[in-house]
Amino acid sequence: MADIFFSIPDLRILSYGTTIAGGVLLWILEGLFPFFSGQKRRDLHARLNLSMAGLNLLILLPSGILMAFVLEWSKNVWPGIGMLALHPLAEAVLIILVIDLWMYVWHRLNHETAFLWRFHSVHHSDASLDVTTSWRFHYMEILISEMLRLPLFMLMGAGIEHLLLYSLLMTPVIEFHHSNISVPRALDRLVRIVIPSPIMHRLHHSRERSEHDSNYGSMLSLWDRLFGSFLMKESLDGLRLGLDHESDSDKQRILALLQRPFRP
């Protein structure tokens, strides 16, 4: 499939380049047109979240290499969706939809399962939501996610090219809806027809459980509408981000965040 448009190395370069360039651009725009004003020491906040992301790369890089070899081997044993003999482009679209559905299910499980929430809550404890929050996850959440998605991708017959293409499409969306950019409401209404919008995701990061247990979509807003987890409010006045008792400054240090899921 990748050879129709790009080679696998091309997709890797595009995916990594889009992640970095998109993140830098959004971080600059947040400083110029913030939705939540008055955020201080954005550099320290970014340093903390990027440190968490750097630790996760120690898992993601070797996992990606392993996944590439395993998926290439598994397609010769079990073709998965390949059994449908679809056109490569149609097959890629179907696999990407299934991957995004899994991302919705996985995200929702992280909220509805007490054990998984211990790790995912590190992401939600960030009271200064911005583009760097999209890279802030506890390493155990990343590890469990990688362990679960490999057999799932093998079952669906996905190739590494499908994962790279999904990453290329999904990552800018995740960076965008985590960002602190002030987006006109008309534009927000328009984009959330297809993708989770910034207003949708700000509600997802509310301290109110009835609000943060909603809007789980990663790339498409379709799943939230389909499975009844879509939530929207006309006004975000008074919205409080983060988690009670977990967003204090003394708990927003890297060691405290790494230890947080293991506290009683």
Rank of each mutant, 00 (worst) to 15 (best):
S247Q: 08
L116T: 00
L61A: 13
H204V: 02
L220S: 11
T19D: 05
L155C: 10
D250I: 08
L84V: 09
Y16T: 12
F35D: 06
P172K: 04
F153A: 05
I181W: 03
G157F: 01
F5D: 06
H212D: 11
S218L: 03
P62Y: 11
A53Y: 09
H204Q: 06
F35A: 14
F176D: 04
N215G: 11
A127Y: 09
W106H: 10
S182G: 10
L116A: 02
L55S: 07
L239V: 07
A114R: 14
V24R: 01
L84P: 05
H201A: 04
I59T: 01
H212T: 07
G23V: 01
L11F: 00
F227R: 03
I142G: 00
L231R: 15
E208R: 10
I160H: 01
L258G: 02
D126W: 03
T133Q: 05
S121K: 15
D248S: 14
M219A: 15
L243K: 05
E30R: 04
R185K: 15
L129D: 00
I144D: 03
H120C: 10
F5N: 07
D10T: 14
I193T: 13
L14S: 02
G38A: 12
N49F: 08
E91H: 14
G157K: 05
G242E: 00
W78I: 09
W117M: 05
L29D: 02
L101I: 07
H178A: 09
H212Q: 10
P34N: 10
S128I: 12
F6K: 10
L55M: 12
S249H: 08
R263P: 00
K251C: 11
D10L: 08
L89S: 13
I160K: 01
A256F: 06
P198K: 08
L236P: 07
R118K: 13
F230Y: 15
G23Q: 08
E91R: 14
A21K: 10
V70N: 06
I160G: 07
H212L: 14
Y104R: 06
L226C: 11
S218H: 05
L222K: 00
D213M: 09
M219T: 10
E208W: 01
I81E: 08
L55N: 09
G80T: 10
L165D: 01
V105R: 04
L25F: 12
V173D: 06
S145P: 00
S218K: 00
D100N: 10
Q252W: 11
R42E: 11
Q252H: 08
R260A: 15
R108M: 10
E141Q: 11
F36Y: 14
V122F: 04
S7T: 15
H204D: 06
F119G: 02
L255A: 13
L168I: 09
I95V: 00
L84G: 04
S197M: 08
R207H: 03
L165Q: 05
V191P: 06
S121Q: 14
G17T: 04
M147G: 10
F230C: 13
D224M: 05
I4A: 13
V131G: 06
G159L: 11
Y139C: 14
V77T: 14
V131W: 03
L150M: 01
I65F: 12
S63Q: 08
